[in-house]
Computed example of a mutant assay.
Amino acid sequence: MNAFWQHLSETYPDSYFSTGYWQASNQDRPSAEGGLQLSPLSQYGFLAIEGPDCSKFLQGQTTCDWRAISTEQASLGSYCNIKGRMVISFIAGMASPETALLRLQADTADSGRDTLGKYIVFSKAKIRNASDERVAIGISGKSARQDLQAIFTELPSKAMAQTSSDKGIIVQLDEAGERFEYWGLSEHAISIWQELSPTANICGADYWETLNIAAGIGEVCASSQDMFIPQMLNYQVIGGVSFSKGCYTGQEVVARMQYRGKLKRRLYKATLPASGLNYPPGTELFGGEAAQSIGNLVSMVSGDQNSELLAVLTEDAVASGEIHFANSSALLTVAELPYAIPSKE
């Protein structure tokens, strides 16, 4: 436990961790229409790739274009195996010209480091799991930009732009400027938290996941590694895949699906009329009375009455409208994503 999590433990003595999510006891779950929401993102960790070849190395391994990633520009991305299946998904940013950061699900950090580490030996760069020293904080709400401007002299101005300072990195996730992630060393994160928290709604880490679900952003965790190609999570639509960058691990499969294949399963947003559920990512879903799986859960957050989720499903199953988990009669209600899927998809 680094200094930031120790600070939260002392500041909120009734807080606890549940399935990887930090929770404040008796917290309210505010609407994004409120003022400022702060979420300590315990579900995330960091890989640091350091050295003069850090971007060059990652260019040949991941789905995003590192020629466009800088201390001013972040990107969604993933690393795939040779079959085009996602091993890790991440937001990529630069702490400095020779330090790349991958913010990813914490339970994939070690395996991501080990896998990428096999190929970095011939590059002028090193990779390490930096999760013990770095922290991610979710900052959202109508007043998010205004509150951050009181601390940072410069902020990003568009989706996936980033700014860097000695206090840490700010990445803007939406066009409206109402959703940001702060990445920083634990001692800096404590200072940022102390400045923002007095006037903020303190939300559990799972609140941030509800915002991801609403935004249609799926991520790979340990239980869903090697399960999805990027197009199944709509990464070709939301900026997680470059088709002009050249070769990378799994590129042949990903490109073939984009230009010649027919995608049979993709990401959908849905609601389940049940609370208190805790299905892990990767859990199979079924259509009607058929015994064969028609998809897999990507993420789920259970509310007081309903559960919000993202799942990769077949188009036929969505059309049938009878999607459920095994041994459950509760049916999913599929909702519209906040972005359009091109008809070819």
Rank of each mutant, 00 (worst) to 15 (best):
M1P: 08
A3R: 11
W5S: 14
L8E: 05
S9W: 05
S9L: 12
E10R: 15
P13I: 12
F17S: 09
T19E: 14
Q23R: 05
Q27Y: 06
R29V: 11
R29S: 12
E33D: 15
G34V: 13
L36H: 06
L36S: 03
Q37C: 11
S39E: 06
Y44K: 01
Y44F: 00
F46Y: 01
G51S: 02
K56E: 07
G60Q: 05
Q61A: 06
T62K: 08
T63G: 07
A68W: 06
A74F: 12
S75D: 05
L76T: 00
L76V: 02
Y79E: 03
C80D: 05
N81F: 08
I82F: 08
R85C: 09
R85Q: 12
M94Y: 05
A95G: 11
A95V: 09
P97H: 07
E98M: 12
R103Q: 07
T108I: 08
R113M: 14
R113S: 15
D114K: 04
D114C: 01
T115V: 12
L116Q: 03
L116H: 03
K118R: 13
F122P: 05
S123E: 10
S123P: 07
K126T: 14
I127A: 07
A130C: 00
G138A: 04
Q146W: 02
D147N: 15
L148C: 14
L148H: 12
P156A: 00
S157C: 01
Q162G: 04
T163E: 04
S165H: 14
K167P: 13
K167V: 15
A176Q: 10
A176C: 09
L185S: 10
S191V: 13
E195G: 02
S197E: 14
I202Q: 10
I202K: 07
G204R: 03
I213K: 02
A214M: 14
A214D: 15
A215D: 15
D226I: 05
M227Q: 11
I229H: 10
Q231W: 09
M232G: 06
M232S: 07
L233N: 03
Y235P: 01
Q236G: 02
I238P: 01
V241T: 00
S242P: 07
S244G: 06
Y248P: 03
T249A: 01
Q251I: 04
Q258N: 04
R260N: 04
K262N: 14
L263T: 13
R265V: 09
R265Y: 13
Y268E: 02
P273S: 10
A274D: 12
L277V: 12
L277H: 12
P280T: 02
A290W: 03
A290M: 03
A291I: 08
Q292N: 10
S299I: 06
M300T: 04
M300L: 14
V301P: 07
V301Y: 09
Q305M: 09
Q305P: 06
N306K: 14
E308P: 14
L309V: 11
A311M: 11
T314N: 08
A317R: 09
A319D: 09
S320V: 06
E322G: 00
I323A: 02
S328N: 14
E336P: 04
Y339N: 01
A340K: 12
A340D: 15
E345M: 12
